[in-house]
Design a protein around this nucleic acid. Structure first.
Lengths: 206, 206, 206, 206
DNA sequence: GATGAATGAGTTTTCATTCAT
DNA sequence: GATGAATGAAAACTCATTCAT
């Protein structure tokens, strides 16, 4: 709301910025930060190299903007999925379902996202990490609070701290998503969220 | 057994190779593949650059050798941990405990290992990936077979396929280890394996 | 004709390309392919090393472009010399005279040319050889056809096949040019083409 | 004469030196000076690299020794061919015939030889050139003296100076040998020396 | 006398970034 | 505001040569 008073100039600028980010997303997700050159991004976005530098100070800056933007989109979608349900178990089911949906619809985005949240990126960029991890932490708190209120309502047994439960759920879904990413045929992400949920909810040993 | 008949020459060579790999491990784990130069490795190992190239054809080759060697060490230790116990639940406890121990004792090795088993490395190296993933897959099978026999013996409820249970256990322990890696003070890896075990074993909802 | 509509940018680019080729010609002809570094060429042409690589993919590519261009110039001049005369003997006289002239005016070019047409280059570059040799072969055919028509007109006795006669004339002139290259004082290339011509035309034994 | 009192030690040394030179000859002739490494030569000769350096101070030194030795063999054979005949025309026929024979029997040697006598080597090695060219010059004098005495005896018409005639004969035979080297099927070196001889001896125009 | 591990100067090539037009 | 030619630091890798054993 309020964007409508942007001048044509401004709107064009934003469109160009977006085009560059889109080209960058595809390339980075495919080849990784170090195997993509600024010229490549410029070429794919159909701009001159100088133009790219008009929008982003340097390669890191571009990457940072890209990752943060994608992470935001991702977290927002998940947050909304949680909020849409009233009851805690349903919130978690929603989370599992929507995570799979986003994943399948945005493989590029996801590859990028994991590269940054998982340790593996070896601080591709020191500065980025801290911002990203902070947001990731905040999102984990949101997830934890679902467990917390579920425990309060006696819906859940307190088998671990809410935060650990959040981490467990996150890692479990990520693991399934990785399996899918590597071999979608053999390891489809379950349509039914309970396949994943049960691993947490039904104790192995009774 | 039988190695003792290596000539001194040969033994020296192996020691030098090891020294180079050690220097490389520390650097790669700290900065990532692309932020370490061969000269840097040579300098750290206190050899001339040419010497490094006598042992490893190129940078990829060195990296590959390093990762495979570390992964082997890691998997062997875990396999042994599993085999040492007789009973399935104890096997899993051992796995959780030893994984934490190795981790804490070899932070460099672990960072390297995760960079390669988790998708994040964006195919730093196509060839490597396949070998490493294959070994990782085999290890997952080993872990799965523990769950399988546990289910057969009616020790475990079959809340998911053995393979998925193995993946769940692996991802859960990894998640705790990542937490520890980021902030060892706030998120220590639990001394008591049951803290992690319970998340799997005691269903959240009864 | 028609080049005049090149943009200034384009014209500058071509000039720069030419400048690099000129620097390379001088250096290669003086020291040979393997004793010239790309940095040296860049320095001589007064460009940064990166600029040289903007114009030529790699060292071989630069060398190839250079040799082909020079060979073309050389062959074109000789072809024209042959075509300018009406009569066969005069065509050959022209060939001998012009070959000497070009040679004296472009020592660098010639050194390069011989390095590639004569076997000595030991395939400095496999790909180049084939292109160059093909062109050389075609030129020999042109020369042979002069002898052929001379023989048909009964101007020449058929003491060998036209192709062999062409080869003989070529090697004879080359030999004189080599003598000159080594010691211009003692072995000047004859002003009078008949000095060379007679060796072919007047049988030693009657 | 006199070699027989060499100690076994000495004889072995010479044999080893010879083995190294043979390996080097094959490699240099195949790939050219700059594409052969000292390690390659050592490996082919089945010696350690240090041993090669016991025999030859450095790569140039080895190359020099090789080329000079081969040139000597070549020139001696040709000199003998000339001396074996009594009459000048026969001497020249012998020269043409034997040159072809040596060539066919020692392609490696010849490739090396031409690389050095023809300008093309771009002074692979400044020092070498002077020695080699001097010997080549001397040999040309020998050949010239055959023409000189033929002219004195009125066997030959003096259509050029004896030296130029020698150069002409040399370049003509070389040209035929090059043709053969490139495509032995299509351009065999003539069995009958008169095929080459006639080009010099029977004037094209009468 | 032979060995081969070690050396390090020197080469090719890439790519993020600048800036004149 | 866009362009793209030019820049040059930095990286991977080679190979002639040395020297301790």
């Amino acid at each position: 709301m309020g964007q409508e008073q942007l001048s044509r100039r401004e709107r064009e600028r934003l469109r160009h910025r977006r085009e560059i980010l889109e080209a960058a997303l595809e390339l980075f997700s495919e080849k990784g930060f170090h195997h993509v050159s600024m010229h490549e991004i410029a070429r794919k976005a159909e701009f001159a190299i100088g133009t790219v530098y008009k929008f982003f100070e340097n390669k890191e800056d571009l990457y940072k903007a890209l990752v943060l933007e994608q992470a935001e989109k991702f977290h927002n979608a998940l947050k909304q999925a949680i909020e849409e349900a009233d009851e805690e178990i349903e919130k978690i089911r929603n989370y599992i379902r929507v995570k799979g949906e986003i994943f399948r619809a945005n493989v590029s985005m996801i590859r990028l996202y994991f590269a940054e949240t998982r340790g593996a990126s070896f601080n591709v960029m020191a500065g980025l990490d801290s911002t990203i991890r902070e947001r990731y932490g905040k999102f984990m708190q949101t997830l934890a609070s679902v467990f917390e209120s579920g425990i309060k309502k006696k819906l859940f047994k307190k088998i671990a701290t809410p935060f650990y439960l959040a981490v467990a759920l996150d890692s479990l879904t990520n693991a399934f998503l990785f399996l899918w990413l590597e071999d979608p045929e053999q390891h489809p992400y379950p349509e039914d969220p309970d396949v994943i949920l049960n691993i947490l909810f039904k104790g192995l040993v009774d």
